[in-house]
């Protein structure tokens, strides 16, 4: 009986101790110690100023001319991973991210030759939510890749 309690006590100490690991070796959002995580959530503060949020979506055109929305599910990622890996860089005119997304998607037979990023900003004002559309950004599949299709 005493031995069992000793083992359980060690287990409790290990579980509690393992929670120090992600704090000591802080990995920001790319944590690889699940289920022992750093619990820094929504810690950022915002000063008084415009309260804005960006909404983005990606549309693709295939070689045969059909259109489809490129969703996180289609890309095989979760929403946050899709946003951080592709949407945000593409919104910053990062064509490498666009090429990487095209490469990821073009395992299918009807390959995507063009992707368009649509972005809008929603701002909170005293009179409600104001919408502002941004110019559409278009990315074409890289020539070397296009030639291999």
């Amino acid at each position: 009986m005493r031995q069992r309690k000793t083992w359980i006590s060690l287990l409790i100490l290990v579980i509690l101790g393992l929670h120090a690991l992600p704090v000591i070796s802080y990995q920001a959002v790319a944590q690889t110690r699940w289920p022992f995580l750093a619990w820094a959530m929504y810690a950022r503060s915002f000063p008084p100023g415009p309260i804005q949020v960006a909404q983005r979506r990606v549309l693709g055109t295939t070689a045969s001319g059909s259109e489809l929305e490129i969703t996180p599910v289609l890309a095989g990622l979760t929403k946050p991973a899709f946003r951080n890996t592709y949407l945000v860089p593409m919104a910053r005119h990062d064509s490498a991210a666009a090429q990487s997304l095209l490469k990821r998607l073009n395992g299918e037979s009807d390959s995507i030759v063009t992707i368009r990023l649509e972005e809008l900003t929603l701002t909170l004002t005293d009179s409600g939510v104001v919408r502002r559309d941004h110019p559409v950004l278009t990315y074409h599949v890289a020539r070397s890749e296009a030639l291999t299709q």
């Binding site: 579980i15 289920p35 991973a81």
Partner: peptide
């Protein structure tokens, strides 16, 4: 796959 959340961690333990 580049996305970790906190919701299940304590419950899984």
């Amino acid at each position: 796959y580049a996305d970790v959340h906190h919701t299940q961690a304590l419950f899984a333990i």
